[in-house]
C-alpha cells in the first residue's frame, strides 16, 4: 500500500496537516480534535487578559506606568482598531505629567492579539533589549492594555521620546499562538504610518531568540538615530545589516 518512509519524509518537509486519513470523506476524530485544540489555544491567546500587576512586579526595580487604550474591552478592541491606537483620558493625563523631562527611548509592552506572547516572552525580550542600551536614557516601561502598535506614537509624543519600541503579541496562528513582535518608530507622534516603522517579528520558542531580537532592535535604533528616520528608508539598508548580524567572523 502506501510507502511509510516517503510520507515520513513528506511530513518532515512541512508543518502542514497532510496525510490525515479520512472517515468517509471527513477528518478522522483524532485529527479533528487536534485542529480544535490548536484553534482553542489561539482563541485563548487572543481573549486572555494579561496580569499587568505581576508583570510590573517582575520588572522591579525598573519604574513602570500602566496605561490603557480607548478601546475599553476586548470586543471593542477587535472591532475598533482606531480606538486601540489611542490612549484613554486617564492614561493621557498620567503620561502628560510624567513626560516633562523627555528621554531617548520608551519601551511599551502591549497585549495586542496574544496575551500568551506577552506573558511568556515580553520580560526576557525587554531585558535583552535593555542590556544592549547601557548608558542610554530610557523612560519608565509602559504597560498598555487593549493596545495596538500605533499607541506607541501617542505615548512617545507625551513622554517626549526620540524613539519608541513596542513589544506586542502578534495575531496567533494554529501552530504558534505566542509570537511576540517588536516595532521600532523614530520620532513617534500620532499619524505615523506603518511604512514609517520597522518590525522584528516571530519571537517565540521556535522562532527568533530574545538575544537575536534585541540585537536587531539595537541595530534599528542606532540606524534610525543616524538617519533620523525609521521605516522604509531604514528597511532598504536592513538586508545588508542581516549579513552583518549573521557573519560568523564577527
Amino acid at each position: 500500500m502506501s510507502d511509510p518512509d516517503l510520507w515520513a519524509r513528506f511530513r518532515a518537509a512541512t508543518p502542514a496537516r497532510i496525510a490525515l486519513g479520512r472517515s468517509g470523506s471527513a477528518l478522522p476524530t483524532k485529527a479533528m480534535l487536534a485542529l480544535q485544540l490548536a484553534h482553542a489555544r489561539a482563541r485563548d491567546a487572543v481573549h486572555a487578559a494579561i496580569d499587568f500587576a505581576a508583570l510590573a512586579a517582575a520588572l522591579a526595580p525598573l519604574p513602570v506606568l500602566r496605561v490603557d487604550s480607548a478601546a475599553g474591552d476586548r470586543a471593542t478592541y477587535l472591532r475598533r482598531p482606531d480606538l486601540g491606537r489611542r490612549l484613554d483620558a486617564r492614561s493621557r493625563a498620567l503620561l502628560s505629567q510624567a513626560g516633562a523631562a523627555g528621554c531617548e527611548t520608551v519601551f511599551v509592552i502591549a497585549d495586542g492579539l496574544s496575551a500568551a506572547a506577552v506573558a511568556r516572552h515580553a520580560l526576557p525580550t525587554l531585558r535583552a533589549c535593555i542590556d544592549l542600551m547601557a548608558g542610554r536614557q530610557i523612560a519608565p516601561i509602559i504597560l498598555a492594555g487593549q493596545a495596538r502598535v500605533a499607541i506607541g506614537d501617542e505615548i512617545g509624543e507625551l513622554l517626549r521620546a526620540r524613539s519608541c519600541v513596542v513589544l506586542i503579541g502578534e495575531r496567533p496562528g494554529l501552530s504558534v499562538a505566542d509570537s511576540l513582535g517588536l516595532y521600532v518608530t523614530w520620532n513617534p507622534r500620532p499619524g505615523r504610518r506603518d511604512s514609517e516603522r520597522n518590525c522584528v517579528s516571530n519571537v517565540h520558542d521556535g522562532g527568533l531568540s530574545y538575544g537575536e531580537a534585541a540585537g536587531k532592535v539595537a541595530w534599528l535604533l542606532a540606524e534610525a538615530a543616524r538617519l533620523g528616520a525609521s521605516g522604509v528608508r531604514l528597511k532598504e539598508n536592513a538586508a545588508r545589516a542581516e549579513v552583518l548580524v549573521h557573519d560568523p567572523e564577527r
Binding site: I18, S25, A26, A38, R171, G173, S175
Partner: peptide, 25 residues
C-alpha cells in the same frame, strides 16, 4: 482548500481537502 484546513503560511483557516470531498458527496 488546504491540508487539514490550516494554512501554515498565511496563518488562517480555510476549508480542508476533506471538506471538498464532503461537499461534492
Amino acid at each position: 482548500a488546504v491540508p487539514g484546513a490550516d494554512d501554515v503560511m498565511l496563518n488562517y483557516q480555510s476549508l480542508s481537502y476533506h471538506d471538498v470531498a464532503t461537499l461534492r458527496r
